[in-house]
Design a protein around this nucleic acid. Sequence first.
DNA 1: GTCCACTACTTTGTATAGCAAGATAGATGA
DNA 2: TCATCTATCTTGCTATACAAAGTAGTGGAC
Lengths: 135, 135
Amino acid sequence: MLYKVVDGLICAYYSVLQDSVEEVNKMASSSQMLKGVLEGCLLAVISKGETYGYEMIERLQNYGLTMVSEGSIYPVLMRMQKEGLVSTVMRPSPNGPKRKYYSLTSEGRSDLEEFKERWEILSSGVNTLMEKGKV
Amino acid sequence: MLYKVVDGLICAYYSVLQDSVEEVNKMASSSQMLKGVLEGCLLAVISKGETYGYEMIERLQNYGLTMVSEGSIYPVLMRMQKEGLVSTVMRPSPNGPKRKYYSLTSEGRSDLEEFKERWEILSSGVNTLMEKGKV
DNA sequence: GTCCACTACTTTGTATAGCAAGATAGATGA
DNA sequence: TCATCTATCTTGCTATACAAAGTAGTGGAC
């Protein structure tokens, strides 16, 4: 019961201290890590050089992430664009319709760094969990 | 357009060949990996010895997975129980209400093994993606 | 010259995962 | 008896991942 109250106080604290909203988001996204791996991967791929969606799928599949498909990444890319993590340019393709090239904004780059840290924590945690259980 | 047809054929193929349903599920769960890390972690924790929910949270936090909370794991545990991955026993606690102890069924053990394989693929993929990007 | 196939992006609809918040309840000590 | 700790379950929301289908430009085959 007490910790509920403490939670409440913390919430109130955060909602008053506007500056801390970032902190809250960071915590939220940290627990969201279990889901949001795809976003981090896309940031990483784009960080290696301007690309477009259709190519990213191939790239990811080359990295062994074969489960990724168009229906997954395009919505994520649009969300990232809306959040200002990437900037886009349309350019004609030599063989097909126009391509939408993505590159990271500075905000996108710092987001990628944060993601790397969180990924490091998560993956090393899960790895030790799995290894020790080899029996 | 053609690949739509091919998709259709593959779907039909699978729906006819009942034995292949497992394959479909495996593929589905493989793409679900991005989400379902928590389930794998719980399976791993339980595999190390019978425990109860409240304790699992502490265990996971010891592994650095600090983002896990009660509201997250109890629904997952119940789902796993419903799917027959774990069996449960209620036993009194020395200091508090009864505890619900979980242990893996054989199905749960094989699910854990599958999860380990998929985790290996995912994490090594993401790791190389992140490492090469260190610039 | 009109199909077909390939490249490429977008939209829609759905299932469900993760989680905060709170309800419930046994045990214990002040 | 009241507060606190342990412990589980439930409710309700948000957003993720995804399949499926829609749109559209290009080029080759016939």
